[in-house]
Amino acid sequence: MTRQLCERCQFTPSTCICRAVSHINNKIRVIILQHPSEEKIAKNTAKLVNLSLTGCQIVKGENNNDFAILKSLPLESTVLLYPNGKAINLDEKAKSAEINNITHLIVIDGTWKKAYKILQLTTLLNQFKTVSFKQLPTNRYAIRKAPRADSLSTLEAVAHSLFLIEQLNPAPLYNLLDELIKKQTQHMPEHVKARYLN
């Protein structure tokens, strides 16, 4: 017997987050490269971004063949969000020409290990400039544990990037994340919930 799912958000009726979804008109087009293992994870936030942003696309895969879309993106105005030694810090250059000219933001959706694997297998990504943050926003996504201190969910990373690049108000995306957390923890015993949320 298959579980009933909401047609729009693909969560069960008791965990449906549609009432918190806002349609956000973003100028910078967001391309999310999603590792296949992330798709079935209930706590994955990429689909929340896709539900909210009018300019967003999720592409699933692991390598150049899967991500052929990268060949069609403009080289000069597309950036990859990834913290490496060459990354431009968005929070330091928020008003510079190189930030103002961005038209496409590529975001890798997966654990650090899977994101690194995508980076190694997808050599097409090497052609794009990378961007990151010097100061990370506070991580709000306590229900999915990450091994690194500089971990943000895909939703948080996109929300903060768009805030810095195009001054897009991140509140609607954060409200949606809060709704997801509320719905995913609503049936947890209080002592278990406290472990996640405190």
Rank of each mutant, 00 (worst) to 15 (best):
I165S: 01
T111R: 08
I88H: 01
L33W: 11
L48R: 06
D178C: 09
K95Y: 09
T122W: 12
C56W: 02
C16Y: 06
T54F: 02
N50D: 14
T185D: 08
A87H: 02
L136M: 14
S14A: 13
L176I: 06
V21I: 15
L5N: 04
L121W: 09
I102C: 03
T130V: 07
F67S: 04
A46F: 11
L180A: 07
A94T: 11
C56V: 03
T111D: 10
E92M: 06
N139I: 04
Q34G: 02
N101E: 13
Y116V: 11
F11V: 00
A194Y: 01
C56T: 08
G55K: 12
K71L: 15
N25K: 15
R29S: 14
Y174D: 10
V158F: 06
I108S: 03
T15D: 05
E190S: 13
E38I: 03
F128N: 07
K86C: 04
Q127I: 03
T15H: 09
N25E: 14
S14F: 03
A146G: 13
N63R: 13
N126R: 14
T2P: 14
Q10C: 04
L124G: 00
Y82V: 02
I32V: 14
K47S: 05
A68G: 07
N89P: 00
Q186Y: 00
S132F: 14
F128H: 06
C6N: 01
C56P: 02
D150V: 04
N25F: 09
E62P: 00
V49L: 13
K182Y: 07
A46T: 01
L33C: 08
N44I: 02
